[in-house]
Design a protein around this nucleic acid. Structure first.
Length: 951
RNA sequence: GCCCGAGUGGCGGAACUGGUAUACGCGCACGACUUAAAAUCGUGUCUCGUAAGGGAUGUGGGUUCGAUUCCCACCUCGGGCACCA
């Protein structure tokens, strides 16, 4: 047998596999189907990135295993070829994007084939192929028909230098991604897709799919569901005019705080503002502010030090529906026109943003929710079924300004550390009570009042002396010590607790009371804003009510209604670009927007001379009169074609459906094929696509489901993601850093099998890892080791290493399912080393090894498999099963710990019972030495793991 | 600021559900084979200590017979979001 020659072997098998079509998915089969999917690549001019094979190998391994398990597997590939880089290249060089794309996909195809992926190449698709985008356009027309595609004037990102509208993805840190110019806002008519109509279902149906938890979370955050209420505030204007400005609707998630709503804020763009032009006394100022906001750049609006600004609408008031009081009305750009109702009730005491604004403009701050601390442990735990006795109390913060320490109380009878507290008697002033308590408990006399706050907490506990459940409200009062003069305190007080001075930085560790955290926060941050749940206060008949319960009650009380709002916005679906699917509508003066009849699809992209957008920011298509001017399909009169194109998310929103029936001319995919193949069983892709692409395609799928065009409501059963491959040293791989690795070089030097093994071995699949050319050699050595063993097995045959083999079969089988490819390979390496050490290895055992190796390294496995006399490809052989009985050990080594430290090991038989093992352990020489004359307190036995002897 | 993810040898990383920390690989050192080198194989490789023994999983606490794993606080790195009421 010859030396291992990866070039020859890999080329040979790739050719044979292709010729025999062993990776072709059969439409309809007796076998169960399995649809595994990877994100199809964007064929850039730079060629395949070293990161592509990571995801593709991972899913290739799963697909290969499934084939061997008897599934009819669909593992397809194609090209997501519309997009910016190609277009920019065309602008620069004047080359036709079709030609560039053809060249790039040819390169990619060749590269992918050289790595030996088991793709079904007969189903290759390309989003820029008119035969494909005909159906992208067709689906768009269905959206249009159902009223889910519409035109709207919206505020878009505009680059004044490139004179072009930018998608959000093209704005990085407030500047144009391409030229670095600060981005401006501009109103422009755009096509929109009403994804928000599906927000609730996109959110809820995540419950039923098997996505990694982080992916579900990211989707949920992006959709941003929040439940709250819509509440109307009456507007009071000096000269009432019927029909204008009578109410403002606000959206809030905290209706429970409405008694603390001390002003109203409208977004500057809010409808009402213009309507009240004549009523607003300071209209000039208001108008100036609105203009200013409109002209703010993205950087100014969202930049680091975004100080809140706003203007009061003078003479305009609103009525708080809970308190019936008049409150001022403001406009401010911290309120977004596009979220909720574009107006808020501001509750500065319980919202950080409102607080910041209120502080700046000296608006009223009214606290209406107070945190509740309930004692549940120890002697002060609240007794069940016992009524509460209400109590007014005070919590006194006394600071010694000399050393910035605080007066605390330490109880003698039990471990309790807190501040000085005490009850406020009927008719007693709070400050008086506070001074009295400090004096009685500590003897300090000269205190200077710093702040009498309206901050309070509520505390439910059991009073162990008075034997009653207490519900106390502690007001916080701040004093500074004037001098240290002090009177002696009573014997009784002395016996209960000590007064101690604690430095500010030590307070956190000192307090044992459950509200200690609150106290420390309060001392560190006098502007304490409480945004949590609690108990209502200052809220009339709702006082004392739990804030969660109060939400519903108050909505009823003020006549509001429960309302769910989403962060998700409708999808801006048009681009003023050349290299995208033309939006298939025409504009007719008489008939308005008219869809292109389905029989006339596709609307093909015409050839142009110049790919530069026009001066007005229209797509270059607008310059081609011959193409633009057309007949109206309805009235046959003059009409103009829409020149906007679709974003490059369009083609990828449904491509997985096309794979099931890629050549169909009558429909995007036949029902029969869709029924057989969908949903996708396992979809793996990059983290960067967990929000947009995944959400968009789920949206399209649900829409098609509603039209009864696809059989399931979700496209993907399972979704996982892979980590990036970084350059050496953990930095990003980029041309400018010169650390780009070309997969071609690796395949040439080390072989595809080595590349595959290395990429799977280098680290956990879902985590980013740094590339290391130095380390590849390990993967290569492993492959060579396999070759050497194969050579020897061919020459002589013999005994069996079945125990380790079966353990490895189990480990590899399970690890593949969990995408723990690195540990699977580690197990294969251990087995290979053992096989090489063994005197001999039987053919049968080695073949099983080859089978479990084959998904990772298909070429060498196939070569050795055939050399061993097999006639049919290893790829369609049966996945080996492990024998549970063979895996069981009879004797095992377990650890013996003394006080949790491993001191020795003993051999036990697996069938030994606990007593036997413990006896064996405590009579062990080493253990006896440690025990000496001492007592053994306890012996813990963890089955087949260890014995811990506690002395 | 908020939300996710991650911190383990010289390096990439392993450790099931709280149960022998450092598997596997790279690198390094020594040895075998060789005229020699490469390749390959073998041995060793967390750290302090001659040893007995001690100390180590970002830092500091806690729970436990026992913590990389659970809880609390903090630090660093990576990614996402960014006034969403």
């Amino acid at each position: 047998m010859k030396e291992y020659d990866h070039k020859k072997i890999e080329k040979k098998w790739q050719t044979i596999w292709e010729k025999n079509g062993i990776y072709h998915a059969k439409d309809f089969s007796q076998k169960p189907k399995y649809y595994s999917l990877v994100e199809f690549p964007y064929p850039s001019g730079a060629g395949l990135h070293i990161g592509h094979p990571r995801s593709y190998t991972g899913v290739d391994i799963i697909s290969r295993k499934r084939r061997m398990e008897g599934f009819n597997v669909l593992y397809p590939i194609g090209w997501d070829a519309f997009g910016l880089p190609t277009e920019n290249y065309a602008i620069k060089t004047g080359k036709d994007p079709r030609v560039v794309t053809k060249k790039n996909t040819d390169t990619f195809r060749k590269q992918l084939k050289s790595i030996g992926f088991s793709f079904d190449w007969s189903r290759e698709i390309n989003t820029t192929d008119p035969k494909y985008y005909k159906w992208t356009q067709w689906i768009f027309l269905q959206f249009l028909k159902k009223g889910l595609a519409y035109k709207a004037k919206i505020n878009i990102n505009w680059c004044p230098k490139d004179k072009i509208g930018l998608a959000n993805e093209e704005v990085v840190g407030g500047v144009c991604e391409r030229c670095g110019t600060p981005v401006e806002k501009r109103d422009k008519e755009q096509w929109m897709l009403a994804i928000t109509k599906y927000a609730e279902r996109l959110h809820k149906d995540l419950d039923d799919v098997d996505y990694l938890p982080q992916i579900k979370l990211a989707q949920r955050n992006w959709i941003g569901k929040s439940e709250g209420a819509e509440i109307e505030f009456k507007i009071v204007i000096p000269t009432p005019t019927p029909g204008i400005g009578e109410v403002v609707k606000v959206f809030t998630t905290r209706p429970d705080t409405i008694f603390g709503a001390t002003y109203l804020v409208l977004a500057p763009e809010h409808d009402l503002v213009g309507k009240l032009k004549l009523q607003i006394k300071n209209w000039n100022e208001v108008e100036r502010y609105i203009k200013e906001v409109k002209n703010k750049t993205e950087i100014e609006r969202t930049g680091e030090d975004k100080i809140k600004t706003g203007v009061e609408l003078k003479e305009i008031k609103a009525i708080n529906p809970a308190t019936k009081e008049e409150i001022p009305v403001w406009i401010a750009d911290y309120v977004l026109a596009t979220y909720g109702t574009g107006a808020i009730m501001a509750v500065p005491a319980h919202d950080e943003r409102d607080f910041e604004f209120a502080k700046k403009y000296s608006l009223e701050i009214k606290r209406v929710v107070e945190p509740l601390y309930v004692s549940t442990e120890g002697e002060s735990a609240v007794k069940k079924d016992m009524p509460f006795v209400d109590r007014n109390a005070v919590c006194i913060v006394v600071r010694n300004p000399k050393d910035n320490s605080y007066l605390c109380s330490s109880w003698k009878a039990f471990k309790m550390h807190g501040l000085i507290t005490g009850g406020v008697e009927e008719g007693e002033d709070v400050i008086e009570a506070a001074r009295r308590e400090v004096y009685e408990e500590t003897g300090y006399k000269n205190l200077k009042l710093i702040k009498n706050t309206d901050i309070a907490i509520q505390n439910q506990f059991y009073h162990r002396v008075k034997k009653q459940n207490r519900w106390a409200r502690f007001r916080y009062v701040f004093f500074d010590l004037v001098d240290e003069s002090r009177d002696p305190i009573s014997k009784e007080e002395e016996s209960i607790h000590d007064a101690v001075w604690i430095k500010k930085e030590d307070l956190k560790n000192f307090f044992t009371v459950i509200e200690g955290e609150f106290v420390v926060d309060l001392i560190n941050n006098p502007d304490y804003i409480f945004t949590g749940k609690g108990v209502l206060h200052n809220s009339d008949k709702f006082n004392g009510m739990d804030s969660e319960i109060a939400k519903k009650e108050i909505i009823k009380f003020v006549g509001g209604k429960e309302k769910t709002t989403f962060k998700l916005r409708d999808w801006v679906f048009s681009r003023q670009r050349y290299w995208g699917e033309p939006i298939p509508v025409v504009h007719c003066d008489k008939c308005g927007i008219v869809p292109v009849p389905e029989k006339d699809l596709p609307v093909e992209l015409p050839k142009v001379k110049n790919y530069q957008p026009t001066d007005s920011g229209e797509s270059p298509l607008a310059n081609i009169a011959k193409w633009v001017n057309t007949k109206c399909p309805k009235c046959k009169g003059k009409a103009k074609r829409e020149t906007d194109t679709m974003p490059n998310w369009a083609g990828s929103s449904w491509y997985y459906l096309r794979y099931t029936d890629p050549k169909n001319k009558k429909t995007f995919a036949s029902k029969k094929n869709l029924k057989y193949w969908t949903p996708v069983d396992w979809y793996n892709g990059g983290n960067e696509h967990t929000t947009l692409h995944l959400l968009y395609s789920r949206f399209w799928h649900k829409f098609l489901f509603d039209l009864k065009l696809v059989p399931t409501s979700e496209p993907y059963k399972k979704r996982t993601s892979h980590g990036m491959i970084l350059g050496e040293g953990g930095v990003k791989m980029s041309k400018s850093l010169g650390n780009v690795i070309n997969p071609d070089d690796i395949v040439k030097t080390y072989g595809a099998d080595t590349l595959r093994i290395y990429e799977m071995f280098m680290g956990p699949f879902n985590q980013s890892v740094a590339w290391s050319t130095e380390s590849i050699i390990g993967a290569r050595r492993f492959i060579e080791k396999v070759w050497r063993i194969g050579k020897r097995v061919l020459e002589k045959k013999n005994s069996s290493i079945s125990k380790l083999l079966h353990k490895t079969i189990k480990k590899v089988s399970e690890d593949i399912e969990g995408m723990n490819f690195n540990t699977a390979i580690s197990a294969l390496m251990i087995l290979a080393t053992e096989m090489e050490k063994a005197e001999s290895v039987s053919k049968e055992d080695f073949k099983k090894f080859l089978q479990i190796l084959s998904p990772f390294a298909p070429h060498i496995s196939e070569e050795l498999w055939m050399l061993l006399g097999e006639k049919k490809s290893i790829n369609i052989s049966d996945w080996p099963k492990w024998d549970e009985k063979l895996i069981q050990d009879e004797e095992i080594k377990i650890a013996v710990q003394i006080n949790g430290k491993v001191r020795t090991e003993i051999m036990i038989r697996v069938e030994d019972d606990e007593e036997t093992v413990k006896k064996k352990a405590i009579t062990d020489e080493v253990v006896l030495k440690y025990v000496g004359g001492g007592n053994i307190k306890k012996v813990i036995y963890v089955k087949n793991r260890l014995v811990n002897v506690v002395l």
